[in-house]
Amino acid sequence: MSEKFEPNIVAFLCNWCSYAGADLAGTSRIQYPANLKIIRVMCTGRVNPLFIVNAFQQGADGVLVSGCHPGDCHYMEGNYYARRRFSLIRELLEYIGIDPRRIHMSWVSASEGAKWKDVVEKVVAEAREAGPFDQFRRNKINW
């Protein structure tokens, strides 16, 4: 089973840097694994730690938060909030037994299409090593 396992990754990308970087990867026709699906937020500062927990509850095997490089945030300091919240939630999730290879954060700028590919490959590879994740699953909520 582990050979066939394809991890399902949910990624939260800021509109200005990482989402644009992912777009650039597309415009440049850079190929990367299809395991990761993107949710666009205006700023990583919008990423509520609840989103990360929720992604795992809904069946993600890995989560990525990606924003502007420190100092480059379109909203001045949103990515600093994101970084602080992220390290807290990552430690908390690790503490309760979630493999940290499932939880990633990266800085990808609007001009780093090639870096975006590297990030996706790394996140997918590590989540693949960590294997399927379903301790957290709960029944689908009908919103």
Partner: peptide, 9 residues
Amino acid sequence: ILPQIAALG
């Protein structure tokens, strides 16, 4: 956003 996550996850 939460329903968006649910649909992906």
